[in-house]
């Protein structure tokens, strides 16, 4: 094992928590059962690493195997940084019939044309996700395996997710994706977060959605008659708030989004007694909502009345549009409300 491979192996091992070492090495599938058994995952990392390096030596494993280990770990633990969602646009007629083999060949060929030194690994998972690891180099430098870009794409869908990518590589990556997926343009989805699964579930709507029921609209149309039993009325209110929360943010286990950011470029909206009302200038600001599960928090806000219903489109757009970054402007510039 050469110096570079050792450095990268060290970086990966340092990243993996002790309790996940065994599982990861098993799914790596490069060491024999005896070799795995000879390793003690409870050892201090530096000692464990020394032993691992010597096992890798026995098997003559090199850089390629090491990068595979990293990929195996990332696939099982994708929360390694901030993922950004993108959407491919303007599909060609044959986009629907692209196979994994075609995708792989076109993608690799395209990037290898542009870069003399580049390392691309690709793997298709059972759920249809294609995982791509790219270590970038250039004409003079070997690929930098310390800062690889990860790309996840689901074939026959327009969605692509990027982790650790630099703007200088953007045009090349886009071009390779266009050729491989048969699309002609791409746009930022304005959706990002640590949980890749959450982003995917959100854009592909893989969570329990609730739609407005006829029953409810009927009830509203008839208006709620003043009920003698106040408790029942309260229960109905609570029920309605819960329904609104579900319609806006879903029900059950919700995608684990951590934040939503709104850039406000609107005029000041105070109450009538407030000042600034006559001003045409913008009241600029940024509002950032964050939580360990944002949709769950918003759901709770609506259900408990902290957020007044019906839910404003600003908040429901997170699920409706699959976005968590918004720039908000007044509808008609120059006009007063």
């Amino acid at each position: 094992m050469d110096g570079q491979a050792k450095t990268i192996l060290q970086r990966i091992i340092r990243k993996i928590p002790n309790k996940k070492l065994e599982v990861t090495l098993k799914s790596w599938d490069r060491l024999s059962t005896e070799q795995l058994e000879s390793l003690d995952c409870t050892q201090p990392k530096w000692l464990f690493l020394e032993n691992l390096i010597s096992r890798c030596g026995e098997k003559r494993l090199g850089l390629k195997a090491v990068t595979k280990l990293e990929m195996v770990y990332y696939i099982d633990n994708p929360n390694q940084g901030t993922w950004q969602a993108f959407q491919l646009m303007e599909a060609e007629d044959d986009a629907v019939s692209v196979s994994f083999t075609q995708f792989r060949e076109r993608f690799k060929a395209n990037l290898e044309e542009d870069f003399r030194h580049i390392s691309i690994r690709m793997k298709k998972l059972e759920d249809g996700a294609i995982w791509i690891r790219i270590a970038w180099g250039d004409n003079f430098r070997k690929p930098n395996h310390l800062k690889p870009t990860y790309v996840v794409h689901y074939l026959q869908t327009p969605y692509v997710f990027f982790l650790n990518f630099m703007s200088k590589h953007k045009p090349f990556l886009y071009e390779a994706l266009f050729r491989a997926t048969r699309h002609t343009s791409i746009k930022e989805a304005h959706l990002s977060g640590r949980s890749l699964t959450a982003l995917r579930d959100l854009v592909m709507r893989q969570y329990q959605q609730v739609f407005p029921t006829k029953d409810r609209t009927l009830k509203e149309r008839n208006g709620t008659p003043l009920h003698p039993n106040i408790e029942k009325e309260h229960a109905e209110y609570a029920e309605r708030r819960h329904q609104m929360a579900c319609e806006a943010f879903g029900d059950g286990i919700l995608p684990k989004l951590e934040r939503a950011v709104y850039k406000l470029e609107t005029r000041y909206r105070g109450n009538s007694s407030n000042t600034l009302n006559d001003k045409d200038e913008l009241f600029r600001g940024v509002v950032k909502f964050s939580s360990s599960n944002l949709l769950q928090s918003f759901h709770h806000c609506v259900a408990t009345g902290i957020v007044e219903g019906p839910v404003t489109p600003l908040l429901s757009s997170i699920t409706q549009k699959g976005k968590n970054y918004f720039v908000i402007t007044d509808k008609v510039p120059g006009a007063t409300h």
């Binding site: 000041y268 000042t275 600034l276 001003k279 200038e281 913008l282 009241f283 600029r284 600001g285 940024v286 509002v287 950032k288 909502f289 964050s290 939580s291 360990s292 599960n293 944002l294 769950q296 928090s297 918003f298 709770h300 806000c301 408990t304 902290i306």
Partner: peptide, 22 residues
């Protein structure tokens, strides 16, 4: 900090000039 499950944090950054105008 909002008392929700889980806790919701709201961070509002106001443009300094606009805040002063208000």
């Amino acid at each position: 900090s909002m008392p929700t499950q889980p806790t919701l944090d709201v961070e509002y950054t106001v443009n300094p000039h606009d805040a002063w105008e208000l």
